[in-house]
Amino acid sequence: MAANWDTFATAEPDLARTVEDRFRAFTHHVLATLRKDGSPRTSGIEADFRDGELWLGMMWDSLKARDLRRDPRFALQANPGEGTSMGGGDVRIAGRAVEVSDPAVKGAYVKEVEPPEPLHLFRTELTEVVRTYVVDERYLVVQVWRPGAPVRTLKRT
């Protein structure tokens, strides 16, 4: 089961706002994809939230685009920022990337974002959103959301 960003944001607005704020705090994040041999590849990427979707745009014929075209599974880790504060916690999103081939959708994205062209554009289908943070320097809190279920919160001391 998977959901787009809007479905997640509607189901869990507070967590969605926190996650989106963490991604918007920095431009560059880390995308994990799977190479042809199944081993992981990590790459820098910009994540874009617009029109109820989480978009991933990338250079034409890049290795990460090739990876996603072959196997759409991904994990996206928000940039933790400088130092050790990680305001808002550590957030990551997992799911599948669906390449956009519709010229109208791609054209609208290019018009709004003005990325270098040509490009690959993927919209995401979320399978998991996770936020990890520390409370009072004593508790580690992990929030996990999966489509069709409420947020599950785990606390560890």
Rank of each mutant, 00 (worst) to 15 (best):
A2G: 07
A3C: 12
A3Q: 15
N4Q: 12
W5D: 05
A9K: 04
T10D: 13
E12V: 03
L15K: 03
A16T: 02
A16P: 01
R17Y: 03
R22F: 01
A25Y: 00
A25R: 07
F26D: 09
H28L: 13
H28M: 09
A32F: 02
A32K: 04
L34R: 14
R35F: 03
R35G: 09
K36M: 04
G38T: 09
G38W: 08
S39L: 06
P40G: 12
R41N: 09
T42S: 08
S43A: 15
G44H: 12
I45C: 13
I45V: 14
E46C: 11
D48H: 09
F49T: 08
F49V: 05
F49C: 14
D51C: 03
L54D: 06
L54N: 02
L54C: 11
G57L: 05
W60N: 08
D61S: 07
S62N: 02
K64F: 03
A65K: 06
R66V: 05
L68M: 10
R69S: 02
R70H: 06
P80L: 12
G81E: 04
G87H: 09
G87K: 07
R92H: 14
A94G: 10
A94W: 10
R96W: 11
A97S: 03
V98K: 04
E99L: 03
P103K: 07
P103Q: 12
Y109R: 08
E114P: 01
E117L: 14
P118L: 08
P118E: 07
H120W: 12
L121R: 11
R123Q: 13
T132F: 10
Y133T: 04
Y133R: 07
V134Q: 10
D136W: 00
D136T: 05
V144K: 09
P147C: 11
